[in-house]
């Protein structure tokens, strides 16, 4: 016995007659979800920056000057076979000197350089930067000395480990904060909707006493909760959209220009920002429905 005209009628009459409660609920949803959305964008960008820094982690394998061509070719093909290595580049003594000259153009140091003191090297780019230490260890033999032909392996030992710790910590802190924000959002919205239902408990009592079924009582309230959540989240998305496109985007442009970060929430090639928007709207609607359903439980039990 679904009677849309009655249910929609009741829903809208209810909203009009309790406009203040309706307005409060929508504002609460809009503001809390806006904060959640804003935070999601910021966290995503921070993670993007950290990932980009991580991917720039390289391993430099310096070779002895007296290394034979056979050994060099053997090492190169061996390293190429490792799964963790994305790319290997050979830098000869001459190229190293060229690079050094370019980097220190006009400096006094160049005058001090006689001959070519720079070693040849392999530069490794990694698929999984977290494994940098294991890879570096492969260049050591059982006694802890470098294997034949290798003079030294450099990968920014201390700095890399710290960076990974920081990313892990910021990641879990961000996760915790988002969970807490969501919890606060749910509690706040639930309470607001509960108050608006409490204000109409007499109506519910009368409905139950004249023989309305539970679903008949419930449906207008669930519609109302859904509308409050839906409209509130829609407002939060509109606010977020304007803020993202006029304010946050400038920050992202600056980050993209200076740090070459590809994974950004708004500018990024993937549509993270759209997922955030859609997620907020779905979340708003669901919170509205569940809040009104649970808040009703107490009053419907007559």
């Amino acid at each position: 016995m679904f009677r849309p005209r009655y249910f929609f009628g009741e829903t809208f009459t209810g909203m009009r007659r309790n406009f203040l409660m309706f307005f409060t609920a929508i504002t609460t949803v809009a503001i809390t979800l806006f904060i959640v959305g804003f935070f999601l964008i910021v966290v995503y960008d921070i993670q993007g920056i950290l990932t980009s820094i991580k991917s720039q982690v390289e391993v430099a394998v310096y070779l002895r000057d007296n290394i034979t061509d056979e050994l060099k070719t053997y090492l190169e093909s061996e390293i190429k076979g490792w799964d963790e290595v994305a790319e290997i580049t050979y830098v000869s003594k001459e190229q190293a000197l060229e690079k050094f000259r370019k980097e220190n153009e006009g400096s006094e140091i160049l005058k001090e350089v006689q001959g070519n003191p720079l070693p040849a090297s392999f530069e490794l780019e990694l698929k999984s930067p977290e494994k940098v230490e294991q890879i570096a260890l492969r260049f050591l033999d059982k006694d802890g000395n470098f294997i034949e032909g290798v003079d030294e392996v450099i990968y920014g030992q201390n700095y890399v480990q710290k960076l990974f710790q920081i990313t892990a910590i910021t990641g879990s802190i961000a996760f915790l904060i988002i969970i807490m924000l969501l919890l606060a959002t749910v509690v706040l919205i639930f309470n607001t909707i509960r108050l608006s239902i409490h204000a109409r408990r007499k109506e519910i009592e009368v409905m139950k006493l004249v023989g309305a079924t539970n679903w008949f009582v419930r449906i207008p309230f669930i519609f109302e909760g859904f509308f409050e959540g839906f409209i509130g989240s829609l407002i939060s998305v509109v606010l977020l959209y304007f803020m993202a496109n006029y304010l946050l985007i400038r920050g992202e442009k600056a980050i993209a220009d200076t740090m070459h970060v590809k994974e950004l929430a708004i500018l990024g090639s993937n549509s993270v920002i759209l997922y955030i928007y859609a997620g907020l709207i779905v979340l708003g609607g669901l919170i509205g429905i569940f809040s009104s359903t649970f808040a009703l439980k107490r009053y419907i039990k007559i």
Binding site: K202, E203, V206, L209, G211, A212
Partner: peptide, 22 residues
């Protein structure tokens, strides 16, 4: 059953001291 209670109440009119009007 709880689901049959509304049917019962439709057959019993109730009047209260405090009217319970909306």
């Amino acid at each position: 059953k709880t689901s049959r209670v509304p049917q019962l109440r439709r057959n019993i009119g109730s009047v209260f001291q405090d009217f319970k009007l909306l």
